[in-house]
Design a binder for these strands. Structure first.
Lengths: 343, 343
DNA sequence: ACTTTAAATGTAAACGATTACATACTTGCT
DNA sequence: AGCAAGTATGTAATCGTTTACATTTAAAGT
């Protein structure tokens, strides 16, 4: 790698084409405002000199970077990486770039990333985590375009893209109840997240509709991970009157739970019916296939980026709540017979 | 979101602290060059005015962004998202940001992303894909800090972080041969990637050591996906003299192959022993657990970022090839008895 | 006390594009 | 031809830091 050969600047192009820098700039940013003949002359000079505009100068002058920040709890987690994929795709299409802020579920790191926004290094932000406190968020919302995706926050008026977690949790649970199960357990996500609260809320509503009161022995808190599913399930299996069905707030936890059950010789779905959440890539590969609530992760990413663009283009754009449709996918783990699936 | 309240600039801080902008700048970038008393005065003014430096002006002036670009074939793929996680972690530690370029295995998009580098919007680039042509790469290498990770290229002298794919492919295959298998099949990755060529090369070397000549009916090309593993295995199963063992160049393909075998009533590992590659998160969860060559994905990310930083800091830094150690993980799919694993 | 040397701070010129405003050039109309 | 209205181009200020160089202040040495 050699040092950079001295950069060709706009003025060089202008000189070669016998025009002013203003005209060159216009050819680049607003071609129609320049006469075809001049434009061609300029384009040719650009070509000839292999001119690359200095993006940093441009960003500085326009105080705009065509870049957005995504704060994600864990990029190595399928559901998040799919959302990021969706965000990146839509961003790219609209000539935007994505700066990645991976917090590893560390709130401090999330707060650090916010400075990228404050220093205007990006034009906006998509939050895939709901951990930032209300006041900070409120302050930022007044100044910068921000969209919350997947998560949901009470008492904060901001654009949000999510699914109806209450409804989904309810549907998942009712699916088990409808098959005659009455001792239905629930492994929730971390309760400091609204998303987990809502899924649990849905579970409780469903139980209630079937005349079943909340039984805290049947509810344990996990952290969405396989490991936590495994451990919590072991807890349930120690109960003398153990559950016959389980609604886990993530597919990873569902898989962990199933593994734990199997390890104790308990057959799934025959002795334990399980419904998960997310429909990650491996839910269909796992055996038994996980019956689950499919989150439209990529679409969620697309939609939140589109929404963010609206905020960026129009600072007066009013916050919107977009609820995407999700769908229950019936596989083997819940005990309902379905045709063999291979992919 | 309101319009930005007029920004506090360095000159405002300078005035309040009764110094020049130069001093303020020094306090920010090189605190030791300023007398403690002055420094404190400036810091207090910064605090008081809630001054945020204009990063865009800074980037422009210094032609440096403290941002790097990662071009990744598919961020939703576990192995890549883990590498990106490693890259991001090391970048963050060193006060660098990560711009994400997800190509979705589309070469055109990869070429597009290169312009981000050419326009100096980033200080360097990590390539997680080996599809860019030799000449383009050579031209870029002369001007910008670039590191290739996971992939490997012949005839291009550039810093690279990878594992020894030949050795690993050989080891995986020998593991099967050592158990007495002679009809060992191989599903390779796409052959336009050196990585796949090498893994296949290792397979061939191993076969050769056992006196087995290349048999093209036992070698099929996949694309690393579950689906391709499934389809290729179906191909092998149609052979009248079908293989008793398989080395798949990715765990996803191994899983696909196992599913295909199971679908035909063939027991794994009893009737078909399988070894995969990567050790993605689900390889231990899948049943049977996948015996595999573990790629140190996160570490690979860390290391490539460290290497890139060396290039950024010293443009004369000579390209280095770093080969990381990988490890075979024995689980059930290869037929060797091992103690139960649950996680 | 008076140089000499070093440390701390200030002055002002960059960095390279964008764009408001001024000017020059066309075109169409009478 | 002469003028108005519109179109195309040019001029030059501007964005907010950084930093080479100049100047001032402090410390050290005789």
């Amino acid at each position: 790698m050699l040092g950079a050969k001295t950069m060709v600047k706009m003025i060089d192009v202008a000189k070669l084409a016998n025009v002013s820098t203003a005209t060159v700039s216009r050819v680049l940013r607003n071609p129609d405002s320049v006469k075809k003949k001049t434009r061609d002359k300029v384009l040719e000079s650009i070509e000839q000199l292999n001119y690359q505009p200095n993006v940093l100068a441009r960003h500085f002058r326009r105080s705009k970077t065509n870049t957005i920040l995504v704060i994600v709890p864990n990029i190595a987690n399928t559901i998040f990486s799919q959302m990021v994929q969706g965000i990146e795709a839509t961003a790219s299409q609209n000539n935007y770039r994505v700066l990645l802020g991976n917090s590893n579920r560390n709130v401090e790191k999330e707060y650090d990333f916010l400075n990228i926004l404050r220093q205007r290094q990006v034009d906006g932000m998509i939050l895939l985590s709901g951990k930032i406190d209300r006041d900070t968020l409120q302050e930022l919302l007044e100044q910068y375009p921000i969209v919350l995706a997947s998560e949901y926050l009470k008492d904060v008026e901001m654009s949000t893209v999510c699914i109806n977690n209450i409804k989904c949790g309810k549907e998942a649970t009712k699916h088990l109840l409808a098959q005659g199960h009455r001792r239905v357990a629930h492994i929730s996500g971390p309760m400091n997240s609204m998303l987990s609260v809502d899924r649990q809320g849905g579970y409780l509503e469903a139980m209630n509709e079937y005349g079943l009161k909340r039984d805290n022995r049947l509810i344990l808190e996990g952290d969405f991970s396989f490991e936590s599913g495994y451990e919590r399930m072991k807890g349930f299996l120690r109960l003398k009157d153990r559950p016959t069905a389980l609604f886990a707030a993530s597919d990873e936890m569902a898989m962990g739970a199933i593994k734990a059950a199997k390890a104790e010789g308990i057959a799934v779905p025959e002795e334990l019916a399980v419904v998960g959440f997310d429909d990650i890539r491996f839910s269909s590969i796992f055996e038994p296939g996980i019956t689950t609530v499919a989150q439209p992760a990529v679409e969620m990413g697309n939609t939140s980026m589109e929404l963010l663009l609206k905020h960026i283009k129009d600072p007066a754009f009013k916050p919107e709540l977009i609820m995407l449709e999700s769908e229950m996918i019936i596989r083997e783990s819940c005990g309902l017979k379905v045709k063999e699936e291979t992919r």
